[in-house]
Write a protein that binds this DNA or RNA. Structure first.
Lengths: 185, 185
DNA sequence: TTGCACACTTATTAGTAAATAGGTAATTTA
DNA sequence: TAAATTACCTATTTACTAATAAGTGTGCAA
C-alpha cells in the first residue's frame, strides 16, 4: 500500500503545521523533502488554505475511524486511549491540531475555520458522551456536567502539549495523570 | 504621561502576536497604524526576534507588578482576579501569550525562548504558592499537589482563550466557573 | 558654537512567499 | 488509436519580507 503524493503532502503539512505553526512553513518546506517541485504541491492544493482544509478534513477522518474503533470499549479505557494519543503527540514534539489552528485563527479563511470547527465539535461531543456514560455507570465522579468536564479535559490536555515545550516534559505526565485521578476520587 | 514609540511598538506587537500569531504579522503591520516607517521599527528592534524578546519582558514586568499588588489579598480573591484577567483576554479576542509563543516555539530564537520560559515559571510559581496557601488555610480542596493543580488551572484557562475561538464564547465562562467550583467542592 | 546622540526618514537590497502559465510524458478512456 | 486526463516540471510573476545604509532635523551638553 503505497502512499500517494497527495497523502504525503497532507501528512508533511500536518507535521509542519503542528511543529512550527501554520505561518511558519512554506510550500518549499513540503516540496524539498518529497523531491518534487513547488508547483506540484500547488497542483494538488492550489492555495495554502486549501491544504489547511485538507489537513483538517484528514483529522476528521482519523478521528471518525478512532471513535468507531473505540465504540465498544469502556468509558475509562476510551479516555485512557485518548490521553495516550495526546502523549504520543507530546513525544513527537508536535502540538494538538486544535491549538495549532486556534493561535493563527485570524489568518485562516472561513472554509478552513469551518472544517476546524467541525473537527473540534466531533472531539468535544465524543468526550462529552464518554463522560456522561462513565457518570451513568458510576465509573466517574464529577461535580460538573458532562460538557463542562469534557471542555476541561480537552483544554487541559491540548494546552499541555504546548505548555511543556516551555516548561518540562515531566509536567505533561503530571497533568495527564491528574485528569484520570480527578474523575476517580 | 505620553507613551513612547518604543512602548507603542511593543503594545501593538503584542496585540498582533496574540490576535494573529507571531509569523502572521510583519513590521508593516506595526509601522502603518503608528504612522512611522518600517525602518523606525527596526531602529527600536533590529530584528523581529528582538521585538519578541521585548514583548516577553514586558509581560514579565506587568506580571511582576500584578503579583505585588495582589500580595496581601486572600488566595481565593487572587485566583478570581487571575481568572478575570483571562476573561478580559478572551473578550479582546486575543489568546494568552504563553500559547501564542508555544505554537510557534520552533521558529523562535533561544533568547526569546528564555524570556518566555522565565515568564511562564513566574506564573506557575505564583499560582502554585496561591494554591498551597489556600490549602493551608483550608479554603481550597484538591486531591493533587499544588504545582499539579496550578498546571491544570493554567492549562485549562489559557487553552480556553484558544478553544472558544473555535467553539463558542459561552464555553469560556463554563471553564472559568468550573475551576473555582472544583476547588470549593 | 560646535558637536553629538536621538529618533526618525528615504532609498535600497537580497531573499522568500504564494501563485500561475504553459509544457510534457505517461496513463486512462471512448 | 485518438482524445482526454493525470501528475507532474520549467519558468516566471507579483508581492511581500526582514534588514540595512545613508541621510536629516531636533535638542541637549560641553
Amino acid at each position: 500500500m503505497s502512499t500517494s503524493t497527495r497523502e504525503k503532502i497532507i501528512q508533511l503539512g500536518d507535521d509542519l503545521l503542528r511543529k512550527r505553526g501554520f505561518n511558519a512553513f512554506s510550500y518549499a518546506d513540503i516540496s524539498k523533502p518529497l523531491h518534487i517541485k513547488n508547483a506540484a504541491v500547488h497542483y494538488h492544493f492550489p492555495s495554502k488554505q486549501d491544504l489547511a482544509v485538507a489537513i483538517a478534513q484528514w483529522h476528521k477522518d482519523i478521528f471518525g475511524r478512532f471513535s468507531l474503533k473505540m465504540a465498544n470499549k469502556e468509558p475509562k479505557d476510551r479516555l485512557k486511549t485518548f490521553l495516550n494519543f495526546y502523549h504520543s503527540i507530546h513525544l513527537s514534539e508536535k502540538v494538538d491540531i486544535i491549538g495549532a489552528f486556534a493561535t493563527d485563527w485570524h489568518s485562516l479563511e472561513p472554509k478552513v475555520q469551518t472544517e476546524v470547527q467541525e473537527f473540534t465539535e466531533l472531539v468535544i461531543n465524543w468526550l462529552s458522551e464518554l463522560i456522561q456514560e462513565g457518570l451513568d455507570l458510576g465509573q466517574f465522579r464529577t461535580t460538573q456536567n458532562a460538557r463542562t468536564t469534557a471542555l476541561r479535559i480537552l483544554s487541559s490536555i491540548f494546552a499541555s502539549t504546548q505548555l511543556v515545550r516551555i516548561t518540562s516534559d515531566h509536567d505533561f505526565t503530571r497533568v495527564k495523570n491528574s485528569i484520570l485521578e480527578e474523575l476517580n476520587n
